[in-house]
Design a protein around this nucleic acid. Sequence first.
DNA 1: ACTTTTTCTTACCTATGGGTAAGATTACAG
DNA 2: CTGTAATCTTACCCATAGGTAAGAAAAAGT
Lengths: 244, 244
Amino acid sequence: MDSGSPTLPSSPWLPFESRRRARDEKREAVLRTAVQLFLEQGYHRATLNDVAERLNITKPALYNYFRSKHEILFECWSMGADLVDSVITEINAGGGSGLIKLRKLVHSYAELMATDFGASLVRFDLRDLAEKDAGVARAAKKRIDATFRKYISSGIADGSIKRCDPKLAAFAIAGALNWIGHWYRRDGTSSPTDIADEFTARLTEGLAAVAIPNHNSKQKTPSAPLRRETRRKAPGKKRTGGAS
Amino acid sequence: MDSGSPTLPSSPWLPFESRRRARDEKREAVLRTAVQLFLEQGYHRATLNDVAERLNITKPALYNYFRSKHEILFECWSMGADLVDSVITEINAGGGSGLIKLRKLVHSYAELMATDFGASLVRFDLRDLAEKDAGVARAAKKRIDATFRKYISSGIADGSIKRCDPKLAAFAIAGALNWIGHWYRRDGTSSPTDIADEFTARLTEGLAAVAIPNHNSKQKTPSAPLRRETRRKAPGKKRTGGAS
DNA sequence: ACTTTTTCTTACCTATGGGTAAGATTACAG
DNA sequence: CTGTAATCTTACCCATAGGTAAGAAAAAGT
């Protein structure tokens, strides 16, 4: 499968010619190629030989820039994390209600998910990282999640967002966004901007044409839990998640 | 690794005793153990030796029930797909507006994502399947996606759902739901029902307290700033590990 | 030019884990 | 108790792919 890789992120290593170029430039070229291959085939199926081949070099040459395969994976992941961090920094610097900040975040995050490094944030398995790197990654994810929750909570406080469970609402929004990294294709019909616009609307304004008439489902609780972050460890309920 | 597996889905193979039991029962026990291990460690890290060990048997014994590792993977995946299919069948049999059907689907699907076989539906990589099986799986996924879109479209038609892009709206909802399979933990604070209730509300009613004032989201987002010029507190070259 | 340092290649090592062969063990029929 | 079919175990094969050694080929320094 996949015979001729169509010269994707033009390699600094020309087939058999001049090989000067700065070191950092080559390092980054490795990452761009690696992230592409990891997304394309999956981390375990993509081999370092594959990566090297696309760059017109051989596998051991990669070890001049990285110490291991998981280090490459981690650096790719970090590129994505840095992108998100800069988005968050920018939004935090600006003003606006909780809802406005949330909408900005949703929009930018959606566009990020349509990039290779952005998608790597959610498509790579942190269990493939060295324990040390995995810790860093988990912390970064936690920061991002905390940001979503913070915007939602402050939106509830300032009245721009209706009362809800910030944790679950953040999961719902982040989930919808993260999933973009799984289905988005460059050759699809929706552009990243289209997607970002629609998601911004749907995830904040909802779908229902009018206020929901009544809760038809078989649920028992009349409505969503009204308290935020209630730390109840209810051992009494014992929900077994058995396959229905 | 993983010394003491606490006798999870009680194995029909007792350590060294009676080994009768029906064949199908054993087959299913393999699937239950496999799906658990695949979710726990990831398909590539989990070995058939691991699976066998948890069942008090040896690897070759598994080949009496399955022809290959990816066949096991596919069967696990299929279990999840069957669950979704039966949910959809039931909803289709009932009545209600597009919105009502959509809400039913969201609720049931959310609960499904909190089960092993349900999560396997979205956590397993279809590229690990044989091409033939992958085709079947893709078709099943397509059917599910089509159902979401159908409910949304009919909801728009009958006036219960506001005008929107059914494709993107379906992706947003399915994404939020699928993500449950990635973060849900049995020992977490939210029960599957809690999650399902909250998601049903958030994904249909939205978050905004009032009609969105104006579309401010046309900001210029940094599409892909590969250079890191993010202002960080510390000028460290590496990522700051501190959370928050 | 000559040396030194960096970069890259050829050739190799080796652990892992999916899968198989062949024979033991069990269940069951008669 | 005996024969047959199933199930399971011990022992093995082997392709793959991450990683290393050692030296060639450039680049850079003098």
